[in-house]
C-alpha cells in the first residue's frame, strides 16, 4: 500500500510502495551492469590502430571526393528517372495489394477473426520483416537484374508497411458512423464506401505519400544488388574508386530526397 501513516496517524501518500521502489532500483542496476558487459564484449575485438587512424582515412577519402565531377550528371538523369519510377510504381502496386489486406486484417472489418485475420496479419509481418534490399536480392535471382525486380521489391516491402498502418487506422474509426450507415439498409460494399472510406481517407493518403517518400530513399540503393536505378552507378563508381563521381551521385540523391519530403509534407498538410 502506497499510503502509510506518520506517527500522528495522518496518512502519507507515496507514488510507489517500498517493494516497487526496490524493484525499480534493481532494474536500473541490472541495466547499467548489462551496459558494462556489452561495452567489454564490443571493445574486445576492436583493432584500436584502425580506430585511431579513422580521422586521417576519412580526411583522405574526403579530399579525393572533392571537387565533384559535375560533368558526370549527364549520365545520371536516366538512372534517376528509373529510380523515381521504381519508387512510384512500387508504391502504387503496394497500395493495390495492401488495401484489401488491411480490410481483412482489421478487427472490425475482417470477415473472420479466427481464419482470415491471422493470414492477413502473417502477410503483413512477412512483408515487413524482410528489407527491400533483401527482397531485391531474391527477386534479381528470380527475375534477373532490372527495373522489374526493383519495382516488385519495393512493392513487397511496402505492402506490410501500408497494410499495418492502414488496418490500425481502420480499427480506430468511429463505429457510430458505420452503425448509422448500416441502419439505412446499405449493403456491405456501401457501408465501406460511406461509413468507413471517408473516415480513413486522410490516414490513407498520409500513409501512402509517406511510404512513397521512404521508397524513393530505398530505391536509390536497390541498384547495388542489380535491381535498377541510380544505385547501379553508385556501385560502379565505388568499385572503380571514382570518388568525385560518388560525390555527385550522393548530392543528387540528397536533392531528390529533399524534393520528395517537401512533396509529401505538402500533400499531408493538404488533406484533413
Amino acid at each position: 500500500m502506497p499510503v502509510a501513516s506518520d506517527p500522528r496517524g495522518l496518512p502519507i501518500w507515496r507514488r510507489r510502495t517500498t517493494r516497487q521502489e526496490w524493484a525499480l532500483w534493481l532494474g536500473w542496476l541490472a541495466l547499467v551492469a548489462l551496459f558494462a558487459v556489452c561495452w567489454r564484449l564490443m571493445t574486445e575485438n576492436t583493432i584500436w590502430a584502425f580506430v585511431f587512424d579513422a580521422p586521417r582515412q576519412a580526411l583522405d577519402i574526403g579530399s579525393r571526393m572533392l571537387p565533384p565531377r559535375w560533368s558526370y550528371v549527364d549520365q545520371l538523369w536516366r538512372p534517376l528517372w528509373d529510380t523515381l519510377n521504381i519508387a512510384t510504381l512500387g508504391t502504387l502496386l503496394a497500395v493495390l495489394l495492401a488495401v484489401p489486406v488491411a480490410f481483412l486484417a482489421a478487427n472490425n472489418t475482417t470477415p473472420s477473426r479466427r481464419l482470415v485475420r491471422p493470414v492477413a496479419l502473417l502477410v503483413i509481418v512477412a512483408s515487413r520483416s524482410i528489407n527491400s534490399l533483401i527482397w531485391a536480392l531474391l527477386l534479381v535471382a528470380v527475375l534477373g537484374p532490372g527495373i522489374a525486380a526493383g519495382i516488385l521489391a519495393i512493392a513487397l516491402r511496402s505492402v506490410g508497411f501500408i497494410g499495418k498502418l492502414l488496418y490500425e487506422a481502420i480499427e480506430e474509426i468511429d463505429g457510430a458512423q458505420v452503425e448509422a450507415i448500416t441502419a439505412t439498409g446499405a449493403s456491405p460494399a456501401q457501408i465501406i464506401d460511406y461509413g468507413i472510406a471517408p473516415q480513413i481517407m486522410p490516414a490513407f493518403a498520409g500513409i501512402t505519400v509517406f511510404r512513397w517518400d521512404i521508397n524513393i530513399r530505398e530505391s536509390t540503393v536497390l541498384g547495388l544488388v542489380g535491381a535498377g536505378g541510380i544505385g547501379l552507378q553508385l556501385e560502379s563508381s565505388l568499385n572503380t574508386l571514382a570518388w568525385p563521381q560518388v560525390t555527385v551521385i550522393l548530392l543528387i540523391i540528397l536533392a531528390t530526397v529533399i524534393v520528395s519530403e517537401w512533396v509529401s509534407a505538402r500533400v499531408r498538410a493538404a488533406i484533413t
Binding site: 448509422a180 450507415i181 473516415q199 486522410p202
Partner: peptide, 29 residues
C-alpha cells in the same frame, strides 16, 4: 432496415462527407 429511420445521440453523421451526401446516404438501401 431501409424502411426504418434511425436518429442518434451523437448524430452519427459521416463527418467528412457533405450535408447532401449524408442525406442521400439515407437512400443507400
Amino acid at each position: 432496415r431501409r424502411r426504418i429511420g434511425m436518429i442518434f445521440q451523437e448524430f452519427a453523421l459521416v463527418e467528412r462527407l457533405t450535408v447532401m451526401e449524408n442525406v442521400l446516404s439515407g437512400r443507400l438501401g
